[in-house]
Design a protein around this nucleic acid. Structure first.
Lengths: 237, 237
DNA sequence: ATGGAAAATTGATAATCCTCAATGCGAGTC
DNA sequence: GACTCGCATTGAGGATTATCAATTTTCCAT
């Protein structure tokens, strides 16, 4: 179903109706009827690990619903060091700033292979005109993003390296349905926690030796969530 | 004009029409006619240094337009350490999460004496129903908040203490119209930058000795912005 | 399977930052 | 003006993290 020459983009037709993330994504309460009028503009885009979904500074013409995989949002300091300000997962909206006419504020880069729906901003606007509840859904997405951002400041950028890594592991584990969760490269983790690759590597190696986590592969892990939470004194649900 | 027994709250009547921050605040494009129907519910609230504008976890019944002064938004780790995730200044909207029915996500505490307009969420909803452009203004406020939050992650939580302090000073200086800008207490600065009080104090003392900043009082400073920017390699506009 | 490149790990050392403790300074009060 | 209380500043020493430099391991393509 891939369109020749369009590298990973396929037309959506029936996909949206049965979309597994629709209930949490942008079109959760839309009438199918109204939705059908516009959804021809929506494309499913598959991106492989390391590719850019969009680039900082580009005019924001599309928003992307993440159907599968994990995307990092990256900003840069003048000296070129990067900082990962958020991770996006299934159901999250990438490039939300496009809906206000802004340029993209980050590089959005696939950490795993990614499955998204690319929705032109104009389509969002037309849909919103007929279905005002879409505004509410969008507001929720803004709130999610801000809440995550605040949480990264409070929980992932404070305290000793061991705590930061543990809090990130908890986040990763709790945002995965499988038993094993995706563990980013040590350099990426460092860019999320404002630590160096070496410090992250040492910390993770220590956690393994202490039996708090177990690596299935170097990028998949299982964790003893209860113990991890007790270390950082997090509520154990 | 203070209402007896209402501690710092006064009724708004003509104030809104001549409001100095209206052009950047919530009601920037509203018809005065529509606005007048609802604005009796809006109260001007004055808060003194150290007081809470609202408290984390409380039901969000009002949003607050900051007319004057600086407010810190604070979150807490399980062990009680606090993190300041943002500063709000003239024209910013405090408690924006109330507009989506959420509880307040932070403690909002006055760093200086504060002058705000407290607007019931219901009033915002009624105004929005008649003046849809209010939705757009609100979206802009969400975007501002998120953009600030990302910037704090990228610029204020990375790099050595000297850089973090300098980047904060630049932010403070650029968000003030006067020549001298408000310099928060060293402990507060530490809670913004994830540094200890002593490290912040030492860093600021060093910057003074190096002639990069000058203290008018212990909480008011002047800075050589050009030099500061060149140190952190920021664009010099 | 195997070779090669990329990533992770480990080590040694230096720089940075935190902790604990003492001292200095300044705004407001009596 | 002296007194205080709350900050800010400074000092010394220890802990943490960054830096630089190997190795070792993992992963992928052949």
């Amino acid at each position: 179903m891939t369109i020749p020459g369009s590298k990973g983009e396929i037309l959506t037709n029936e996909i949206c109706k049965v979309c597994t993330v629709r209930s949490v994504a942008l079109f959760q309460d839309l009438d199918l009827e109204v939705f059908n009028k516009f959804h021809s503009a929506i494309r499913e885009v598959e991106i492989s690990k390391g590719d850019h979904l969009y680039t900082i500074g580009d005019p924001g013409e599309r928003v992307f619903t993440i159907r599968q995989g994990i995307v990092k949002l990256v900003q840069y300091l003048p000296d070129g060091t990067q900082r990962i300000v958020r991770l996006l997962k299934q159901g999250d909206l990438a490039g939300i700033e496009a809906t206000t006419g802004s340029t993209y504020q980050h590089d959005a880069i696939a950490l795993t292979s990614i499955d998204t729906c690319a929705i032109p901003v104009k389509t969002v606007e037309m849909l919103a005109a007929e279905q005002p509840q879409l505004h509410r859904t969008l507001l929720t997405k803004w709130q999610d993003a801000l809440s995550t951002s605040d949480s990264w400041l409070t929980r992932l950028s404070t305290g000793p390296s061991r705590y930061r890594v543990i809090r990130l592991l908890i986040w990763l584990a709790e945002n995965t349905s499988e038993k094993a969760f995706y563990l980013p490269g040590r350099e990426d983790i460092g860019n999320m926690l404002a630590l160096t690759t070496e410090t992250v590597s040492r910390t993770i190696a220590d956690l393994r030796r202490d039996g708090l986590i177990e690596l299935v592969r170097s990028d998949f892990a299982r964790a003893d969530l209860r113990k991890l939470k007790s270390i950082v004194k997090d509520a154990t649900d």
